[in-house]
Design a protein around this nucleic acid. Structure first.
Lengths: 241, 241
DNA sequence: TCAAGTTGTCTATTATCATAGACAACTTGA
DNA sequence: TCAAGTTGTCTATGATAATAGACAACTTGA
């Protein structure tokens, strides 16, 4: 087997481009298993190691994910999630051509620790409503978030959210016409067992942890929340300037 | 200097693509001299040998031509010359966005040899008019052609051609409203000294030699000719089907 | 539990890519 | 005629690409 041609484009790159084209035009659907490395090698008439080089390049860009002993799978394209002052999950997901969904997992009461008290401008130990929700794009879970609101300012918030299933609508129910993001902090962690189940994510996968506080137009804090995004399904875009 | 990046596209190919883009968008005009190999190497931060590899690839495709001791020049794009039943130099050149020109070099009398006699349906030794002409696109000589016509059928053709400078118009002058190509034979040769001067072509360059006979609508032979095209300035397109 | 099939990793070999330096052959303009 | 600048050719070296084979580690389904 000689195969030279010398086009100036490495063989592995040609294979990678071919597979990427297949993903782009839907020949390989998101989540689907690619043909085995051996099979790909045969269709491109190339050594298996060359295929591995191609797959490694695609994996580095997050387009595919190899699972030892099982196969190589097409990663769902990451949802572009711009972080702006005006951040609405439903608008962002809708703008990406997906249907935004929200689902209440749990709601209950809590008391403010030092951090939450500072964010919401309350005293430590102040009564809170805690809402656990999962947000989806179409049928794919994107993030789970724990939201805290002042129980005095928003009485019965839990049952209201269960009804409207949208934070924007919940706040509107209490007379808040508009709000915006005051602060956003991003870190990353390994998903814990309960979030893994809620996100339908295997254990050991990374999540993006976002702590954010929303305020009304007079900069009075409304809600603070901690969201855990499945890192492999979302991509934050930070506006420059 | 390490320079890796490992994009899967060879460095020489990146350089070649860059130069080709420069030619395509007119940054390097046809006939113009490219920067020296050393200068190109510096602008791309690459070894001179890598530049040579890139230029070799472009030269193989006919986009540039290197002249030892002088420089590397952008080759004029080859004129696309479709070979159809209806073949008119002026129409082909005009369709390519160039201005067709014809120039009489010489006209005289001749007698038919066996081959010409067969093509024109005359007897060997029959009197002929011989017209030598050069055809240009804009100011670039494309081909020189020697055309033979029956002296009995087209008396005084030489002086008529000198006036109208177009074979189509010459035939129209004798009442021929339309004509088409009956046969076309193509070979190649090295340019001879007189043609080289007429085509403004260095000695040793290849020419495409085309023997063709045109007939009227009743398939009666009108003219037969031998044209020599500067191979580097033209590209014949054969209609398939 | 087991066999078949998958990805992961190792060693090894050959060809190409890219760099580097030196010098020859040639053109151009002073 | 000569010097400067150009392309052409040679040798050499290290890095990368592509091949080949073998086996380990793991998943899946029977």
């Amino acid at each position: 087997m000689s195969m030279q041609e010398s086009s100036g484009v490495a063989l592995w790159r040609q294979v990678a481009d071919g597979i990427e084209r297949g993903i782009a035009d839907g020949r390989f659907a998101a989540g689907e298993k690619l043909p085995g490395e051996m099979e790909i090698a045969e269709t491109y008439r190339v050594n298996r190691h060359t295929v591995r080089r191609a797959l490694a390049a695609l994996a580095e860009r997050g387009l595919v994910r190899a699972e030892r002993g099982s196969g190589t799978y097409v990663e769902a394209q990451r949802l572009a999630y711009p972080l702006r002052s005006r951040t609405r999950f439903s608008e962002i997901v809708g703008a990406g051509g997906h249907e935004p969904r929200g689902q209440l997992i749990d709601a209950g009461s809590d008391v403010a620790n030092r951090e939450i008290a500072r964010e919401l401008g309350l005293k430590i130990g102040a009564p809170l409503i805690r809402i656990e929700a999962v947000r989806l794009a179409d049928r794919t879970p994107i993030c789970v978030s724990t939201t805290w609101l002042s129980a005095e300012r928003f009485p019965d918030a839990g049952s209201v959210f269960a009804d409207v299933r949208s934070m924007t609508k919940l706040l509107g129910h209490y007379g808040v016409k508009d709000y915006h993001r005051a602060s956003t902090r991003i870190t990353a962690a390994i998903v814990d067992a309960t979030d893994a189940a809620r996100l339908d994510l295997p254990l050991g996968r990374p999540v993006l942890v976002v702590d954010a506080t929303d305020v009304d137009m007079l900069d009075r804090p409304l809600v603070t929340k901690r969201s855990r995004f499945a890192a492999e399904r979302v991509e934050f875009l930070v506006e420059n300037g």
